[in-house]
């Protein structure tokens, strides 16, 4: 059993509470207009378009495959910019045990691991195996997800998951389709299901004025989840859209919210009983 790994960050400050090793898996089923790391969306097609972009000769084309030599790489991201398929030539297929060996180096400096993407729940069995290893060594396990995997059907995974950080990109289904290309029916179901099981650690919404009705989304998510707060407090992370990393065809059309707007939305959530609200 393998997953395609985009990268592993040994010490991460931004992928959940405390110091965590963050593992980014490759491939995503959504196509969010504001995607900040589009190079994690697709698997490498081995088209070779990136090979000549590499200034240090870390990439080569052999037997119809793109080969990547980590030792020569200077992490300039030229290959990622050259990729026509929203991918990266630097991904590696790894088993849960192989990923674990990269994670355990950080013990005892980390309190847990977070698996993100791409969309990491495209690999549910892999996640389950990795989380079993992590929990056996006292590490907490978080999933960063777009919510398209129906968690209710994966009890084994949920049993070894300490929490899910769930993106809810819009509450209205049509708006959600416009932002991501997908219906949010399963996403919202997951939000309620995970909250009822005490597994919803965090909800995130990226705000970009004009893209969808943020006030309505945030109000309705707040209403939907406020009754679950006594089971386990839910952190709400309000993320201001930033053009960094966004694909050029979308970058121009998207707006950045003001600090005042974001604080207004945070106030809406606070009024509904959310205590842990982060604006970034």
């Amino acid at each position: 059993m393998v997953a395609t790994v985009n990268k592993i960050i040994p010490f991460s400050t931004v992928d959940g509470p405390g110091n965590r090793t963050a593992i980014f898996l490759q491939g995503c089923n959504m196509n969010c207009l504001y995607c900040h790391n589009p190079e994690t969306r697709c698997k490498c097609m081995h088209c070779g378009a990136c090979v000549n972009s590499c200034p240090t000769g870390a990439l080569s084309f052999e037997d119809e495959k793109v080969r990547y030599n980590c030792a020569k790489c200077v992490h300039c991201d030229s290959c990622i910019k050259a990729c026509p398929h929203d991918s990266s030539p630097k991904t590696v297929d790894m088993t849960p045990e192989q990923v674990w060996r990269k994670v355990e180096k950080q013990i005892p400096f980390i309190r847990g691991i977070t698996v993100s993407g791409g969309e990491c729940t495209l690999y549910p069995e892999f996640l389950t195996e990795l989380f079993i290893l992590a929990q056996a060594h006292g590490l907490s396990t978080l999933i960063d997800s777009n919510g398209t995997l129906d968690f209710e059907h994966y009890p084994d995974l949920l049993a070894v998951t300490d929490g899910v950080m769930l993106d809810i990109k819009a509450f209205d289904c049509e708006e959600h389709k416009r932002v991501t290309g997908w219906s949010n029916q399963v996403v919202l179901k997951n939000a309620r299901f995970l909250a009822s099981k005490g597994k919803l650690f965090e909800v995130r919404t990226v705000v970009s004025p004009g893209l969808f009705d943020a006030e309505q989304t945030i109000t309705q998510i707040g209403d939907m989840l406020s009754s679950y707060l006594p089971i386990r407090p839910i952190r709400y992370k309000l993320i201001s859209y930033r053009p960094m990393g966004v694909r050029p065809q979308y970058k121009e059309t998207l707006q950045i919210p003001t600090r005042n707007q974001m604080e207004y939305y945070a106030g809406l959530l606070a009024a509904k009983g959310f205590k842990d609200i982060i604006i970034i």
């Binding site: 110091n19 013990i107 005892p108």
Partner: peptide
């Protein structure tokens, strides 16, 4: 020196202190 993102997550630094002192 630590990145500004740690203001939101001071536990990050404490985890490093704990691990370091065990090591």
């Amino acid at each position: 020196p630590i990145d500004v993102t740690v203001h939101q997550n001071p536990e990050y630094v404490l985890d490093i202190v704990k691990g370091s002192f065990r090591k």
